[in-house]
């Protein structure tokens, strides 16, 4: 006896055509990938500004070579206090050359190179700590007129901006997910309408709700998975390019920032794209598939409640 193909009358390839839904899910996944990439990038920059190069304090000491209130010069006394304070990672006194390079735009404008310049100490603090305020009375005591400038005002503002960008990205992802769920619901309902006679018949022959919902959900889950895969693949080149452009802002060293990109080497791609973003790209297709599967299960079961 020849084996026959299994047919249960639902004809899901007619009810849920394979072109429409994957395309829409791919578009949604693409948008979700961009939004998530924006959120991850904002988080990375926020970390960098808060804990990296942004966590720099400058200490200006006027009359550095004058005697301090105690012994030695003012700059030596200040440097000694700062360097041994807890929470300070490094304290580097800028050399004359570094200082003149820093001030070159202003000095060249005035044309006066004989201006008395303060000594400048660049202090890198341990991430998450702010040791300078408690030191101020001691610094003031040994070197009156010392000026401490902390970049936290700007890094705080930038961190707040990054947080709002992350919130916007999350909101965008939620909106995209909501639209995707609505699209899946609409497609499923259209499919149910198309096959309503067949569904009513197999229901009357004793098919369980779980069977009918499962058949629809498997089909939609697969189509959504394919769509999610397409969206992730489509987003990859754009995310690579964006990551490459963003590298100088998030690099921890100048060498990383200016390193040339070898586009033919996939390992180099993995180096420039944040790992969180790579995991997110890998997670998008199964997330789309699961979202489609769950949405379809709920939609079909609700629809079947019309039948006795």
């Amino acid at each position: 006896m020849a084996r026959r193909r299994y047919h249960d009358g639902l004809a899901l390839h007619q009810a849920l055509p394979g072109q429409f839904l994957p395309f829409l899910v791919a578009a949604m996944s693409f948008l979700a990938a961009l939004a998530l990439a924006g959120g991850i990038a904002a988080h990375g920059l926020s970390q960098r500004w808060t804990h990296g190069a942004g966590a720099v304090t400058t200490v200006q000491v006027p009359g550095p070579d004058d005697p301090a209130a105690g012994s030695g010069t003012r700059i030596a006394a200040v440097q000694d206090i700062v360097a041994h304070a807890p929470g300070v990672a490094t304290a580097h006194r800028l050399s004359d050359a570094e200082l003149r390079a820093l001030l070159a735009p202003w000095i060249e404008q005035t044309g006066d190179s004989s201006l008395p310049l303060p000594a400048v100490i660049e202090v890198h603090t341990v991430p998450g700590q702010d040791p300078m305020p408690p030191l101020l009375p001691r610094l003031e005591a040994v070197a009156p007129g010392v000026l401490v400038e902390h970049d936290s005002v700007w890094s705080d503002r930038l961190a707040a901006l990054a947080a709002s960008l992350q919130a916007c990205a999350l909101l965008a992802v939620l909106i995209v997910m909501t639209v995707a769920v609505c699209v899946v619901m609409a497609a499923t309902r259209a499919g149910l309408q198309t096959r309503r006679q067949a569904i009513a018949l197999i229901h009357s022959l004793g098919a369980m709700d779980s069977y009918i919902a499962g058949r629809f959900a498997s089909r939609v889950g697969l189509l959504a998975l394919v769509g999610g895969l397409g969206g992730s693949i489509a987003a990859l080149p754009m995310l690579l390019a964006m990551s490459h452009l963003a590298a100088p802002f998030s690099a921890m060293t100048d060498a990383q920032a200016v390193a040339p990109m070898d586009w033919r080497n996939p390992r180099a791609w993995a180096d420039i794209v944040p790992h969180a973003l790579l995991w997110m790209l890998l997670a998008l297709p199964p997330a789309a598939g699961i979202t489609g599967w769950v949405t379809t299960q709920l939609t079909v079961r609700a629809w079947l409640r019309r039948l006795p």
């Binding site: 047919h7 249960d8 009358g9 004809a11 018949l201 004793g206």
Partner: peptide, 19 residues
């Protein structure tokens, strides 16, 4: 209430397949 896009065989087999 026969399903027009199924063959006679598949129409008759339907209740058994659901079991």
């Amino acid at each position: 209430r026969l399903l027009p896009d199924l063959s006679v065989f598949d129409n008759v087999a339907l209740p058994l397949r659901l079991q």
